[in-house]
Structures are given as structure tokens and as C-alpha cells.
């Protein structure tokens, strides 16, 4: 009955009090109830009101997604839960730092592809680059895939941050 509905991917924004343990509450909720976390980002967004914004990308059946939102909303320090995927168009971005170690043609090719992707080299040595790339998760995946044969050494990603398009506010 409840397993029938297909698995969906959702980006959910959660406005919380920036207090010790809040991230543990959210992460503990997901692990304790067996929900997926594809990515999770958190940082203070309003220093005066001590508010942080968590962006979590998760997946599950319709019923599970509704549960996730209700369970998040039930946490005492949670101010608002917003399902960006459901509530309308939104923009989502991720930042990655990609280290490539290579020589010769590979090095030139890496730089050329980085240019196409509008990635910036923010650190450079004779044998290495660190690229900064911003975009959708898919774009970053594509970039990393292309770097793999060109000396890809290390990747650090922020996970998705997202916000609704237009005048709509959370």
C-alpha cells in the first residue's frame, strides 16, 4: 500500500536556532528513522537572530518525504521547514574544490576543460591545480568525471544549497 509510490528526490530547507546540538538533532532524526541524506549543508544565516539554515537533499516515497518534513517540523528549535522541490521553482548550487595533479598535455587539457566549465584555478604549482567550481550537482559530477583521466587527485564538495526563485521568501 505505502510502498507503491515511487522514490522521489527533494531539496528541503530548514530554518533553525543556531544552538549547540541542533545539527545532531537533525542528523540523528535521519539516521534514527532510517531516512536518506544525499547531502546536507548548514551555516548561520542570521547572526542577530541566531538562525541557521540547513539544506538537505533527501529521497523517499511520498509518505516518507511527508514524514521527514513533519518530523523535522516537530523539533523544538526548528522554525520552518520548506520543501523547495515541491513549493515551486528554486535554484540549487554546489561548490567543489578539485585537485588535479598532472604534467604535460594532461595539465593543459585540464586547464582547458576548467575554462569551459568556468572553474577557477585558485591554487597552482608546477605539478598541480586546485579548481573551484560552482553549479548544479550534475555539472560538478561531469567536471569531476572529465578530470578523472587528467590526474584527478582529491575532491571536496559543499553539498547543495538552495533557495526559491522569485520574490517568495521562506
Amino acid at each position: 500500500m505505502n510502498q507503491a509510490s515511487p522514490i522521489q528526490r527533494r531539496t528541503i530547507a530548514v530554518l533553525v536556532d543556531n544552538e549547540p546540538g541542533i545539527l545532531a538533532r537533525v542528523v540523528g532524526l535521519f539516521s534514527g528513522r532510517g531516512y536518506n541524506i544525499e547531502s546536507l549543508t548548514v551555516a548561520e544565516t542570521d547572526a542577530d537572530k541566531h538562525l541557521s539554515r540547513i539544506t538537505v537533499v533527501t529521497s523517499g516515497s511520498e509518505m516518507v518525504i511527508e514524514q521527514i518534513k513533519a518530523q523535522l517540523d516537530r523539533l523544538v528549535p526548528v522554525h520552518r521547514v520548506s520543501d523547495l522541490t515541491q513549493e515551486g521553482p528554486h535554484v540549487a548550487r554546489e561548490l567543489a574544490l578539485v585537485k588535479v595533479i598532472s604534467k604535460g598535455n594532461d595539465r593543459v587539457e585540464a586547464l582547458r576543460i576548467a575554462d569551459i566549465f568556468r572553474a577557477k584555478a585558485i591554487d597552482s604549482t608546477i605539478g598541480s591545480f586546485v579548481f573551484e567550481i560552482t553549479g548544479s550537482g550534475e555539472k560538478i559530477n561531469a567536471f569531476i568525471e572529465l578530470m578523472a583521466p587528467l590526474g584527478l587527485a582529491e575532491v571536496s564538495r559543499t553539498g547543495i544549497v538552495a533557495i526559491a526563485r522569485g520574490e517568495k521568501r521562506m
Binding site: 505505502n2 509518505m63 511527508e66 514524514q67 513533519a70 518530523q71 517540523d73 516537530r74
Partner: peptide, 11 residues
């Protein structure tokens, strides 16, 4: 009273 109890086990 708890919205998370609704549609948890039974739709």
C-alpha cells in the same frame, strides 16, 4: 495533535 503521526503507518 502530532502531524508526524498522520500518514506514518497508514495512509
Amino acid at each position: 495533535i502530532d502531524p508526524s503521526s498522520i500518514n506514518k503507518n497508514v495512509r
